[in-house]
Design a protein around this nucleic acid. Structure first.
Lengths: 192, 192
DNA sequence: TTGATTCCATACGCATGAGTATGGAATGCT
DNA sequence: AGCATTCCATACTCATGCGTATGGAATCAA
């Protein structure tokens, strides 16, 4: 038995609550975000929560902002660092495909598009990513208008894949099948 | 003023509740499926509901089964009636793209993939549709393995588009832009 | 060390929504 | 017409989960 299974920090900060909220969202969805449940998970009671946050919605708001902030910064900069523009998209596809954790929150938020707080966040994030794809396709030599539609198509394929395989667990591809699928995507969506 | 604004059927059947449930799901999502709300919308009270159904879950179950039954029968048979296999996919794309109402329920159910009752239904429906795409690509002359991945990609693009444009209302394409997008999809996803 | 501030526990109130109990109205059957 | 069955209204109970009130413990500042 480990001495400190959890950090065992006797006092909590607002950020601790936000992180806990995000991981709970990733695992059980936005709907499962309840303050008493979170408190139990953190080993405290509601009394703590309502000192740090005015309401449940306030926590969700803060957690979403936090997620939007520290979201995709690294990957984008890594891809932009690749000198040859024509190599960026395949590399992006492969990198994103082998991530896992970052998708969980996004997939969960996708299922919470009813909630008025998550809609604007998802709108901004999706817009940024699509625009990133747009310029990537353009820099790879694709005509402007086609590049935009291809970016939309690509991002839609990504989002749909999350829903079908991630959340729904539909075809439950094994490793080889998944890699073959990714290469197929690259072959059909990225110009030679 | 019309004499009978609503069918004004004084007694309701279980099917009436199921249809009302489906339209409510389409408009406000599975989470909004509450019996008292439905009852108000139907002009009755809970007393009626609990005569027709044992529980709220039972209604959802029945509504889902109903939706799965009378779902996509027509479109599939229409497409299969097209003699030239190579014309089926483009026609399918255009037809589906100009539907609207059938997508609403599917999009709503996509956001309820947490719920244990909707998961198996969505799994079956998505599986059937993907298999339909698979054979369509095969019959259009595509090699078996590639046809499967292309079917997955196509269906993922469909699902993702629903989320992004339908639910999220992201780029909010106008009519011309949308048609251009559909033609772009056809050009990139369907072999010449 | 002592006061102030920060953080948390306990015990509430209160709204919502599912499910139950029971009686009454509407409809079909004979 | 009269009875049984079907359908619905009314009036509850009960669980859940948000938010509040208030006091106490921990930590910091002096």
């Amino acid at each position: 038995m480990n001495v400190r299974q959890k950090p065992e920090r006797t006092r909590l900060s607002a950020e601790d609550w936000e992180d806990a909220a995000l991981s709970l969202i990733a695992e059980q969805g936005v709907g499962a975000l309840a303050v008493e449940a979170l408190a139990r998970q953190l080993g405290v009671t509601k009394g703590s929560f309502y000192w740090h946050f005015r309401t449940r919605e306030a926590l969700l708001q803060a957690a979403l902002e936090r997620w939007e902030q520290y979201g995709e910064r690294e990957i984008i900069s890594q891809i932009e660092a690749i000198p040859d523009p024509r190599e960026r998209l395949p590399e992006l596809f492969r990198r994103v495909a082998h991530e896992l954790q970052p998708h969980r929150v996004y997939a969960a938020l996708l299922k919470a598009l009813d909630h008025p707080l998550v809609v604007p966040v998802m709108a901004r994030v999706s817009k940024r990513r699509t625009e990133f794809l747009h310029t990537a396709y353009s820099e790879a030599g694709m005509e402007a208008n086609e590049a935009l539609n291809r970016a939309r198509l690509t991002y839609a394929a990504y989002v749909g894949f999350l829903q079908l395989n991630f959340t729904l667990g539909l075809p439950r591809l094994n490793h080889e099948e998944f890699d073959a699928y990714v290469e197929h995507m690259i072959a059909t969506l990225i110009p030679a």
